[in-house]
Design a protein around this nucleic acid. Structure first.
Lengths: 350, 350
DNA sequence: TAAGTTTGCACAATCGATTGCGCAATGTTG
DNA sequence: CAACATTGCGCAATCGATTGTGCAAACTTA
């Protein structure tokens, strides 16, 4: 043992964590041997079973745990996979976060998620921070500007995948928003016809017109109407943003007699829609049918909710992890079908 | 520059990330100077403004970003704060996660959250993993066995704080479950009396009898009844676990004529309660009033929901971060009041 | 101008683990 | 028994940043 290390031994007394040097000293072997035993490469290094057992035992005695900082510094890969995500507080993103962690662990990776609260600057900051921690991969979920994140990652030589919202510089996994919206629209229209006996166009509410997903859903919304020969009004598409308040405000300005059926573009928007509905004269609720993109267990039980298009998180993340393992960096868009979930059987009728 | 480092320079060519050595070489200064300029300690080291500017510029040119692994290895503190949390997929924990991240960043700390899906083993694993990453602090949220996590952290010399569920070996921040439940119970009882004209005991459903929070809420539930002189039945308290299915199953076995008012112990349980309610004869819903501990925007709008006790996440986390900064390790329990949130004005009546 | 300060920066040790390489001891073959 | 192969393990360089210390140059004071 070199002089510098024996100096280290002294410091060890203060800080509680034990190192491979401590274990090596007690067992009477070298740090490199301890290291290889503890990280599983010891057969390759032809360490004897007996010595390995002693080291393992002593490591336990000393409550040894690797210093990941040191380990990662030396290794080429960190085995960390980062994710940035807009919010935790709805079922869709919550499920993504949870599933992502589970699958990352299954793949032997350590997941680190950062929530960027739909703030474009924070997205960039967060991506930079994760790169500073030397993540091996980055998943950019629902980012407002996926391509600048992709650029950061490319400069750093880190593989990146877009989730939920597509980009052009990295492979993307998103829902089949078009088909999901088209089917949902169709179901709401059918229910309205069944309950009201007439075929009037629905109102699409929420989302940003500039955002890819909203655009695709609007497309499906339009085509479902066309299919049934129902003509849209100029006011039929209200992409007023996702925020609940915006939806509430927008609805208040529209002609109520024309609001028989609503296509709500997200659960966040639905919060506003529901507030508005419930705050109208009680009888009004009975005259409205609605459906929503994204699923929430309680929202699904709200009266007169016809159904919800659930984004299928598990296959989405399976696709993500599959792409991570591929060596080629194809930047295509992989679409995953949505699952239609009927609303509560429960109806309020006048 | 020593020989070893010039060897390093060669490797740099392959890996894209630039280091302080690269910047130093180009500027014609030493790595230590670059380091101190980039981490802000350069005034203390009396580096000239001019050289600092050059270094900063060159660092930008090269897209330099610190290698946190290396930085943390050398420093005493990692400035990482870890959190383990049971789930992301409900509003309470979602809000905790989000608020935690925000406040951690405000305090100059890097937050790392790990979701343990209410699995005791995973809790321990996750805590060990975070300790391996050398977190400076650990927040154990809703853990089934806070004390063994505390023990791990104490061995490692890491400060730990329990959140949501208290432990005995570390300071804890929890909601005032007793008062919250007592008030909620009282409100539901009042509503039942108003709507049904009679005072019958409520049924408490969900949670584990062994868990601190459930016990405190049951206490408040009992006292609120006593206060009004209402006598509980033997079947009035059903702590059948949190899972939605368990609640559904339990309710199915009870005497429906006695289920006029329900105290639901969590939103997860409420999912099952709502399913059960909605699956009964439609008229049955009209005869029931309920309230729930924890808040959810859609659950709050379900018909005949009297109100919800919202746990006040912001002051809870403020208390947590305050405790982190304290040097003394008092292991008391800090209780935070809940906020009562009325349910939808909307009522279904027969 | 000599002695003492201050300014400005570089050196080298260090954090803890990983890993290519080398070498002694033991085992095998002819 | 010599030549060679295998087993078992330690040495030392290395990852990239941080920081105590030292020292020359510039500046000040007497």
């Amino acid at each position: 043992m070199s002089i510098s290390r024996s100096g280290t031994q002294k410091n060890r007394q203060n800080s509680k964590r034990t190192t491979i040097y401590d274990v090596a000293t007690v067992v009477g072997t070298s740090p490199s041997t301890v290291s290889s035993v503890l990280n599983g490469t010891w057969k390759k290094r032809r360490i004897s079973q007996k010595l390995a057992d002693q080291i393992l035992l002593e490591a336990q005695n000393q409550d040894y745990s690797v210093n990941m900082q040191a380990s990662m510094l030396r290794r080429e890969r960190s085995r960390i996979v980062g994710m940035i995500i807009p919010k935790y507080d709805n079922r869709y993103f919550g499920a993504i976060a949870e599933q992502f962690e589970t699958m990352a662990r299954q793949h032997g990776l350590f997941p680190v998620i950062t929530c960027t609260r739909r703030d474009p600057e924070l997205e960039i900051e967060a991506a930079k921070a994760l790169l500073s921690y030397r993540v091996d991969y980055l998943i950019a979920t629902g980012s407002t500007d996926p391509d600048s994140i992709s650029r950061l990652c490319q400069d750093a030589g880190v593989r990146v995948i877009n989730l939920d919202l597509p980009g052009t510089l990295a492979p993307s996994v998103i829902s089949d928003n078009y088909q999901g919206a088209r089917h949902l629209t169709s179901v709401i229209l059918d229910q309205c016809f069944k309950d009201f006996g007439r075929s009037e166009p629905l109102t699409f509410i929420g989302g940003r017109g500039t955002d890819h997903n909203t655009a695709a859903r609007v497309s499906g919304f339009i085509d479902a109407h066309q299919e049934k020969g129902i003509v849209l009004r100029e006011t039929s598409i209200q992409t007023c943003g996702y925020a609940a308040e915006k939806a509430e405000h927008t609805l208040a300005l529209l002609d109520k007699t024309q609001l028989k059926g609503l296509f709500v573009n997200s659960t966040i928007t639905l919060e506003g829609v529901a507030r508005w509905l419930w705050n109208n004269e009680p009888s009004f609720v009975t005259q409205v049918r609605y459906g929503c993109f994204d699923w929430d267990p309680f929202a699904a039980q709200l009266p007169n909710n016809v159904g919800m298009a659930q984004q299928d998180v598990i296959p989405m993340l399976e696709a993500v992890f599959e792409m991570l393992e591929q060596t080629s960096v194809t930047s295509g868009v992989h679409q995953i079908s949505c699952v239609f979930r009927p609303g509560a059987a429960f109806r309020l009728e006048s």
